[in-house]
Design a binder for these strands. Structure first.
Lengths: 214, 214
DNA sequence: GACTCCATACCAACTGGTTGGTTTGTTATA
DNA sequence: TATAACAAACCAACCAGTTGGTATGGAGTC
């Protein structure tokens, strides 16, 4: 590809013994977010992780198996990070939701290849060609949606349910807007559509719950 | 002198002379939507289009150049299709917008590899590794957003502008929701999140313009 | 506490098949 | 008959995965 960003394949120092698997999963997240799944080779993953192919196929029977494991790894990495972002001290669940959305809008300002969702990028590419990876990404995204569902459930309990929506549908819709924002931001090579989408989502939620737009 | 009839082992009958380029672009849209960009090989594109590699590299200097051309081709294929879907006879622009959203929700019921957006799938994968393709996808998506911007502009003129939103931001947000819906539908291997997202988007627009939810 | 035993973790060279792209030649049409 | 539109064989680089090893550290024995 003509303008291929010179991906630095400089030799990463080898991870300490016992850390090769973890290093490979981290490398997968980093490289796949930047280049996609098929364009990321096993050799690249190995050199980025600082291990050899022998180590790779010791820990994973195939590249596909690494993809499945990386999708699971993604929840463990990013789930706690998101949880920490939302301010759990806020007593009003709607306040927590808005705080979470503000937090996500902050993250959106980071470079695109670190601000976007590993699972979304991966599943968009392999949904039809690898059922195991697709299902792992589905489970991952559901796991990321879940805590938000809890907040919406609490918000509906204390503020009343807006007509026609459920806590689950609102939580899923929220992540739908994130995923769409990632795609649009990549297309524009700019975070603006993502940040604006989150703002519109906040407006929607405010309107639904009859709250003044924050 | 007898000439042996060439037995065709191709998957697809060869297109008539002069149609190879078009056949390759159509094949690109079909295959990339299903398997992604990097996983789609030039050989596959050729056999799906019913031409040889000679024809491929006669029409395109590289695989990347085909990607750029396919992004442009996508507007020409899907743009008119969308335009025909929205009912232009409706005099109220807001009615036209809702009709368009209903149309998109109908399309969403098709199998995922034909219901989703070629440009979105492509740019998600190559945004960092091919600037030409990324920019072509950006232009394509802007071209698809544009007619909707016109409708929102007319809606704002006749119904008044809701606070804090513009015609352009609403049109972009609409396509953001589509793109996000595609990703979520792929992750769940089911159109439900996409269809529900469109329903929530309709609710948002109805709330914004103070219209009873259709 | 030195000593064997052994599973796990890792390494590096190699393989058969595939990749994007090239070369050279053929056919239709203006 | 000049030129665009193809076809087919070919190539060097690259790909996922394999092979046959070596290093490490912990458990068991004396």
């Amino acid at each position: 590809m003509t303008n291929a960003t010179p991906v630095s394949h400089q030799l990463t120092p080898s991870p300490p013994r016992g850390q090769a698997r973890r290093a490979l999963l981290d490398a997968a997240i980093k490289l796949v977010r930047r280049q996609g799944w098929a364009a990321t080779t096993v050799d690249e993953l190995c050199s980025s992780a600082g291990v050899t192919k022998g180590a790779f196929f010791h820990h994973f029977p195939s590249k596909e198996a690494l993809g499945v494991a990386a999708a699971k790894h993604w929840v463990e990495v990013i789930g706690p990070f998101f949880a920490e972002g939302g301010d759990t001290r806020l007593s009003d669940p709607l306040d927590r939701i808005f705080a979470y959305l503000d937090f996500r809008a902050e993250i959106a300002k980071a470079p695109l290849d670190v601000a976007t969702c590993f699972a979304g990028t991966l599943v968009q590419e392999v949904f039809a060609s690898s059922a195991p990876i697709r299902d792992a990404c589905g489970a991952t995204i559901r796991a990321l949606v879940e805590p938000l569902t809890e907040d919406f459930r609490a918000a509906i309990e204390s503020h009343g349910a807006p007509a026609g929506v459920t806590a689950e549908s609102l939580a899923i819709y929220t992540h739908t807007v994130f995923q769409g924002g990632f795609v649009m931001a990549k297309a524009e090579n700019d975070a603006a559509p993502l940040i604006d989408a989150i703002a519109q989502l906040k407006r929607y939620i405010a309107l639904l719950f009859g709250r003044a737009h924050p």
